[in-house]
C-alpha cells in the first residue's frame, strides 16, 4: 500500500506529536493492524523516534502489529459477563470459527479476542463484532451473529444492541 491514506491521517492531526495514539488508531482502521513499514513511515514523517512509536504500538492492547481479520470478535470476560456464561460463548465462537483466542481465521475474515469489560455490563454477556455490540448472547445465537459478517461486510441487525 502507498502511504497516501496515512499522509491524509497525519494531515488531519496536523502532524502533532501528542496525537500519536489517535493517529495510530486511525491508521489501524485502514488495515486492522499496524504494518511495520507504516510505523516506520509515521516515525519518519512525524520526526518521532521509531522506538517511541513502537513503544506506544506495543503498549495498548487495541493495537495489533500482526495482520488481523476484517472483523474483530471481542468476547467480554469481565465479571458480569463471566457470571452470565461468557465462557460458553467464547467456546462456541472458537468452535464456529475454528480458531482459538488471539488467532485469525485463514480467510482473514475474523480475529478472536477476549476483553475484560466493554462498559456495557447491563447487557451481559456481551460480544462485540467490529464496532457492533451484542447483548445477552447465548451459545445458540453465536453462529447466526457471525454468519451475517462472513457473507457480506454487513452486520447482523438481528439482536444487535
Amino acid at each position: 500500500m502507498g502511504f497516501e491514506k496515512v499522509d491524509e491521517i497525519l494531515e488531519n492531526y496536523a502532524y502533532k506529536h501528542d496525537a500519536l495514539i489517535g493517529i495510530l488508531q486511525d491508521v489501524q482502521r485502514l488495515e486492522n493492524y499496524l504494518p511495520q513499514e507504516t510505523l516506520q513511515y509515521i516515525g519518519r514523517e512525524l520526526e518521532v523516534p521509531l522506538s517511541r512509536v513502537y513503544y506506544i504500538a506495543t503498549f495498548y492492547k487495541s493495537f495489533s502489529l500482526e495482520p488481523r481479520g476484517r472483523h474483530i470478535v471481542k468476547v467480554c470476560l469481565g465479571t458480569a459477563c463471566h457470571l452470565n456464561g461468557a465462557v460458553q460463548n467464547l467456546e462456541q465462537v472458537e468452535r464456529v470459527l475454528s480458531i482459538r483466542e488471539g488467532e485469525t481465521t485463514e480467510d482473514r475474515m475474523f480475529s478472536l479476542e477476549t476483553v475484560n469489560c466493554v462498559g456495557t455490563c447491563a447487557l451481559a454477556p456481551v460480544t462485540m463484532v467490529g464496532e457492533d455490540y451484542y447483548g445477552a448472547v447465548t451459545p445458540g445465537r453465536v453462529e447466526k451473529i457471525l454468519s451475517a459478517y462472513s457473507t457480506g461486510s454487513g452486520s447482523a441487525e438481528d439482536g444487535k444492541d
Partner: peptide, 10 residues
C-alpha cells in the same frame, strides 16, 4: 539523544 531502545509490550 537517539532513543534507539524503548520498552515494548506491557
Amino acid at each position: 539523544g537517539v532513543s534507539a531502545i524503548s520498552f515494548a509490550s506491557r
